[in-house]
Write a protein that binds this DNA or RNA. Sequence first.
DNA 1: CGTAGTCTTGACCAATTGGTCAAAGTGGCG
DNA 2: CGCCACTTTGACCAATTGGTCAAGACTACG
Lengths: 208, 208
Amino acid sequence: MLGKTPRTRIQKKNHETILEAALDVFSGHGFRGATLDQIAVEAGLSKPNLLYYFPSKVAIHRALIDRLMVTWLDPLRELDAAGDPIEEILAYVLRKLSMAREYPRESRLFANEIVQGAPNITDKIDGELKSLVDEKTSVIKGWSDAGRIAKVDPYHLIFSIWATTQHYADFDAQIRGIIVTDGETHFDDARVFLDRLFRQMLSPNTEK
Amino acid sequence: MLGKTPRTRIQKKNHETILEAALDVFSGHGFRGATLDQIAVEAGLSKPNLLYYFPSKVAIHRALIDRLMVTWLDPLRELDAAGDPIEEILAYVLRKLSMAREYPRESRLFANEIVQGAPNITDKIDGELKSLVDEKTSVIKGWSDAGRIAKVDPYHLIFSIWATTQHYADFDAQIRGIIVTDGETHFDDARVFLDRLFRQMLSPNTEK
DNA sequence: CGTAGTCTTGACCAATTGGTCAAAGTGGCG
DNA sequence: CGCCACTTTGACCAATTGGTCAAGACTACG
């Protein structure tokens, strides 16, 4: 049996291979829709071999979620209370948009989980996620109260940033059906659009 | 066997009961995660009885999607080229937000499907959805070109409206974990926030 | 009533799926 | 080389799942 942390090189490599394959399969089919056989094939391993490295299907899923939860929240962590308010928030928007482009599978993994009621990650949502959001919303509220940005509900600001950026990863299939460009130019267009959208709202001078 | 349309009263009733139960189960677990037994229990019918009214699991899912596709696009259809541009778009935002509150299961049904690559509805996306969006974006572009609203990419405007409004239904579990209010006041807050967000962006006078 | 069509279900089936296990490899180190 | 821990897998299992079927129950209608 294996301990919590991989020790040998071969363990490290296969651990990685499995998680990579599992990310593909889980993000594309959801937890229930994914099968160990699919993951095994994708990883180039046999099913029992998978279960030599991870005790169960849920354990693989859990390991994925645990690992991703960290990097997923990084863009928000970097929001700097000491920086220029508007530029800080806009930089956060761009960071999130970049993650949607570069890590769409991770985005969909979370989306799948949350759409179905977040059965396996309620603890993480109520825990680290909530506390981080609480911290950053109070920073934003500080800026708002000081008149450095327009008066906005910081929670809904963050929700709208999440929604608009992750949308490009999570609803990619829909977007590709509507915008038929060959390349991925819509990410550039999205960058321009979202910058404008949030800049307008945050700008404090445009008060009535 | 049954024809395409229910004929007797009892058929009509059970058809309805099944679709209602199926909406619950499919929206909460995705297509693959949902089981006929769950739907049967939820509907208060036996599994073979389900299959008396629908030939297969996919047929139930298909019937749901078909039925919902119509009403789901209604808010966009109502966007009136003859109305006041800004108020038309803002009214559309509110209509979408209302649907997210009143029909969260429908929203999640679509979300589940699209996140996983829209395997069963690509035809509908490339068909009615795309043509409707094309039509309305050209209306918005007309307003934009005429200077009646700010210059914005109409496609990304619609995407951002979809994203921000549906987010309240699809990511409800996350929102509830972060905003701990007892009631559903966050829908009212969202209304205010989104109105402001999009009004600012669309307002033509705030040009540089 | 009776009977023909409609509706319902218990029993059953084949395929899939998560997981087990014992036995067979394989790598590295003295 | 020889040994031992680590790694891999074919065969197997019980549970679940979508779907079938034939027999029974119900309903409407003459």
